[in-house]
Each structure stands twice: as structure tokens, then as C-alpha cells.
Amino acid sequence: MNTSAGGKDLIGEDLGKGRKMAYGRWRFLMLSIAFLLILLNPFLNYFWHVHFIQGWYQSFGFGSLWFVSPLEGLESLLLTKSLYLPSLIGMAIPVLIALFLGRVFCSWICPVSFLLELFDRVRRLIGRKKFLKNRLLVAKRVLWFTLLAEIILSMILGVPLFVFLSPPGLIGREIMVVVFFRTLALEGGILLLIVLLDLLTRRFFCRTFCPLGGLLAFLGRKRSLRVHVDQANCTQCGLCAKSCPMGLLPNSGEGASAYCWNCGECLDSCRHDALHFQWQQNGYTVSVTDQRS
């Protein structure tokens, strides 16, 4: 107990550098909590029959407050051509979050993101590297193609495709299957593939091949929360571009593009205080840091 507490304090001092807690650490904490939630949840359901928290990030029940993943809900809606109110209400909060904050589900909650983040941290620790390389780059626009292909293919087949193979949902399902039926479902191999692809390029799957990410990015095109570059402070050192898990160039304003998922890695990496989160309301920019109400 004593040693671990001491160790934690040391790390805190080492990374803090007199600044507030970095976004990266907040994000990792958030990802861990989100992952822990779906990890513990089947155990609670199975062994203690506590059904207060239910499901995983395909449909998440928190008491009587339900969330439905927007892509899954949209496909179900498109394919059956019928509206179902609980499903629509369940989609409302995720859609609103995506509209205002952008793809934050991907970077702050998604369990795949947690696994890849963990993998990244382990790789950095083993390789003693500060930044990981991207070896294979795919055009960022492919994301929209993925989203379209997914929807069109689902409509051709008449069944939602991604719902079953969606990696964010797959993790929850695998954990549930292990706890409930004591087996592993075959499709878990997809997760392994995604983690292996991360060796090639950081967030290779998330960047271009996640239809859910595509939909959230599409919803977040006109989002309010964006990464803003202060050109006066920016020295074009390129640290932010190296640290960006999505392979964007925040220093040339790509933090405001649809592909940015507002993780805040670039803000942490910047040594010249040139990058900030900004809240834009009707074209009028309000900086998050000066907190005006």
C-alpha cells in the first residue's frame, strides 16, 4: 500500500510540471472507468443479479436511462422503415454529444480506444520512444466511404452489418460471453486484428475503417468544441503532429477539421501554449480557458 501510493505521487510530480492535470491523464482515467464499467457489469449481472447498469456501448442501460449507439439505431431505423420511440430517445444524448463535442465518444469512452491507448503506452514504455510512427497512411476521406459503404451494404442485405462486428460493442459482448457462457466467441479475432493493425499505424482502424466513428465525425462536422491554433505562439515545431493519434497536423489547423476527435493529446504536447480548446457559439469564439458565462 505504502509503496504504491509513494510511486503514484512520484509519477504525479514527474508528469505534472506545475501544470494542471493533463488531458491525456484525464482521458486515460475516463477510458479506464468506461472500460471498467463494461468489464464489471456482466459480473454484477451474472453473480449478483444487479441489473441497474446493463449492456455495453451498443445499448447501455443506466437505470431507466437508456443509450443507443447512433449508427446501430440509424440502421435499424432505415432497414425497418419504422420509428420506435425508446430507440430514438436513447440515440438523442449520443447524437447531441456528437453534434456539440464531436467524436469524443471515440477518444474518451470507446473500449477499443482504451485497449489501443494501453497498447500504445506499453509500446512506448518498452521501446523507450516518446512518439510512435505511422507506417501506412490511408487517405482520411476513406472514412466517409466506409460509412457510406456500411449503410448501403446493410440496405442491400437487409440486415445491419456493423452492429455485430462493431469493435466497441464486440469487446462488451466478448466479456459477457466469457462470464455468462464460459466460452470465447470467434469474432473476437477482429479485436486482435485491430490491435495488430495499430502496430502499423496508430489507430489504423479508428481513423478510416470505423463506420461508427465515421457517423460521429459526420455529426461533429459543425461541432462547437474545436482545437484552435494560436498562430502567434506556434513555432511550427511539429510536436503536436507527432503526438496526434489520428495523424493530423494540429499546427496547420487540422484540429478544427471533421477528422479530429478532441482527445487533447496535441494540447498536452505543445510547449508553447499555442493550442487550446475553443467553444464556438454562432461563429463567436469563446475560449474554454477564460471561462466567461
Binding site: S76, V159, V163, F164, G169, M176
Partner: peptide, 15 residues
Amino acid sequence: IFAARCIRCGRCVEV
């Protein structure tokens, strides 16, 4: 229409 409507969230299995 079952396959089209179900989003495979597994909540019925879990409950």
C-alpha cells in the same frame, strides 16, 4: 424483419 430491427446489443441475453 427481426434481423433488420435487432441491433445485437445483447441486453436480453444479459438480463
